[in-house]
Design a protein around this nucleic acid. Structure first.
Length: 457
RNA sequence: GGCGACGUAGCCAAGAGGUUAAGGCGGGGGUCUGCAAAACCCCUAUUCGGCGGUUCGAAUCCGCCCGUCGCCUCCA
């Protein structure tokens, strides 16, 4: 498959170095509920992984958790709880959110606080190599150590300083030098180090973790587009300086950002919809369909109307998938052609909008074949398979306590069928109307009356 | 100010030099149905932000302009 890399700026034929695809995706800083912007990013990388696995690759997926930083400490203080405990709670919630979104779990979720010895080892080595220097208990990386610093974001040190928004710390040798280690202030969580008690800077953990869990050269390093600079740029600089091996990552994959109204959704701006909020209004399939209906590198604006539209689309997929045919007449559905079209779309830098279009084309063809009295079993099975590559479950929404409800619904339907046979349509329609209002949709088909729950699960 | 992305139907969104400009949602008409729902069929962009240019040919390439967004040490 062709996969775009931010570093090369082009779509390049993807090929891992070895038998296993080493994929590292930047994770969250857990100090609040994860929002739908996070959901989008992790759905994108989930689909990338699922597709790589679908075409036969063995993927090793590692995602970090930055469980110590300024925001976590600040939030912990506000709430009067231990910041590390706070981080743990939000990490647990984050994983629950990912499960709810049908995002496959990474093979490992290393945490910054568990990697301190490795981090210190790397910082010490960078100091020894002359690529880092301590000041007052902080340790900074010397950006001039990387002769092509800025290559990921395609800019130069000079260009970056021209528009600097923030007053540089006068103690630093170069305004762009960044912290590898931060000296602890009073009451902050800290670890002993050769430069005094402190904690890791934002970028160094990713270097330590990717080296420890995946090795010196990653095949894919992913994250949101807002991480290109400074986070990923700095990761490259410090990692390559440390190992002396280039490239640190062979493919840099960045997803476009989710917008809410005029600007991107951001924890610091506070304009966010949490994943829980979103999943209260629509199914995971609808949310995934919403993300995957536009290309992953472009921006996307969140909207409830758009989500509602995707829910109807998801319903269309589910119906086609679940509706049985009673025929064993052969069908003229070309299974191979759908697979080919789907793969061609996905092979082209994960063109999920086109892949989704293939699914909907299949739906129409399946429904048509069924009406023509042909068997649709193989095509429906393929629809489930390809939907699964996109992480769509195609399961019908259900309700709390559905199992207990079912006999009662069946009883009502039985009664209604009797009324219809007696041509008492007014009463029969009232039952249907009231059930619809309660989120239970009825359909009178030649096979009898069928029903399903509607709305969010 | 620097760097970059984007502008395609009522809405969302693919397509990136040449057959009828995907797909979804919405809307209109029809078939089926006791009526609905679902499903199916037909219709819903002669045109791709604007103006120039290159080309036999441009939504696709180039230039300028307008608009929107992102990054320029909090960020998925």
């Amino acid at each position: 498959m062709k996969l775009y890399s931010t570093l090369s700026g082009t779509k390049d034929e993807f090929q891992p170095q070895g038998d296993v695809v080493k994929m590292y995706v930047c994770g969250v800083t857990p100090y609040s509920d994860a929002h739908v912007g996070h959901a989008m990013s992790y759905v994108v990388f989930d689909v990338l992984r699922r597709y790589l696995e679908y075409i036969g690759f063995n993927v090793q997926h590692v995602q970090n958790v930055t469980d110590v930083d300024d925001k976590i400490i600040q939030r912990g203080k506000q709430r009067g709880v231990d910041p590390l405990k706070l981080a743990q709670e939000f990490t647990d919630e984050f994983l629950e959110d990912m499960d709810a979104l049908n995002v496959q779990r990474a093979h490992q979720y290393p945490r910054a606080t568990q990697e301190i010895p490795d981090i210190l080892k790397i910082i010490q080595a960078l100091v020894d190599k002359g690529c880092a220097y301590p000041i007052d208990g902080d340790v900074y990386f010397r950006v001039t150590c990387d002769e092509d610093y800025g290559k990921l974001g395609h800019r130069t040190l000079e260009g970056m300083q021209a528009g600097a928004r923030i007053e540089p710390d006068p103690r630093k040798e170069h305004p762009m030098d960044f912290a590898l280690w931060k000296a602890a202030k009073e009451g902050e969580p800290s670890w002993e180090s050769p430069w005094g008690p402190g904690r890791p800077g934002w970028h160094i953990e990713c270097t330590a973790m990717s080296l420890a869990y995946l090795g010196e050269t990653l095949d894919i390093h992913g994250g949101g587009h807002d991480l290109v600079f400074p986070h990923h740029e700095n990761e490259i600089a410090q990692s390559e300086a440390y190992t002396g091996i280039k490239p640190f990552a062979r493919w840099w994959v960045h997803n476009g950002l989710l917008q809410l109204g005029e600007t991107k959704m951001s924890k610091s701006i506070g304009n966010l919809i949490t994943i829980r909020d979103a999943l209260a209004t629509c199914s995971a399939d609808a949310l995934r369909l919403f993300f995957l209906s536009s290309h992953y590198r472009g921006p996307l604006a969140y909207g409830e109307d758009a989500l509602a539209a995707q829910e109807r689309g998801a319903d269309r997929l589910r119906r086609a998938y679940h509706t049985n045919d009673t025929s064993n007449a052969p069908s003229d559905l070309d299974i191979g052609a759908y697979k080919t079209r789907f793969s061609e779309a996905m092979d082209d830098d994960l063109n999920t909008p086109q892949a989704v279009a293939v699914l909907f084309d299949m739906v129409r063809d399946i429904n048509r074949a069924r009406e023509d009295g042909q068997t649709t079993a193989d095509a429906r099975s393929l629809l489930g398979e390809l939907g699964g590559v996109l992480g769509l479950s195609l399961t019908n929404p259900t309700h709390e306590g559905a199992t207990a409800l079912e006999p009662l619904i069946d009883l009502l339907l039985e009664t209604r069928t009797g009324l219809r046979e007696a041509r008492q349509f007014e009463l029969a329609d009232r039952i249907r109307q009231r059930l619809t209002e309660l989120g239970i949709a009825l359909e009178d088909t030649p096979r009898g009356t069928e029903w399903h729950f509607t709305g969010a699960s």
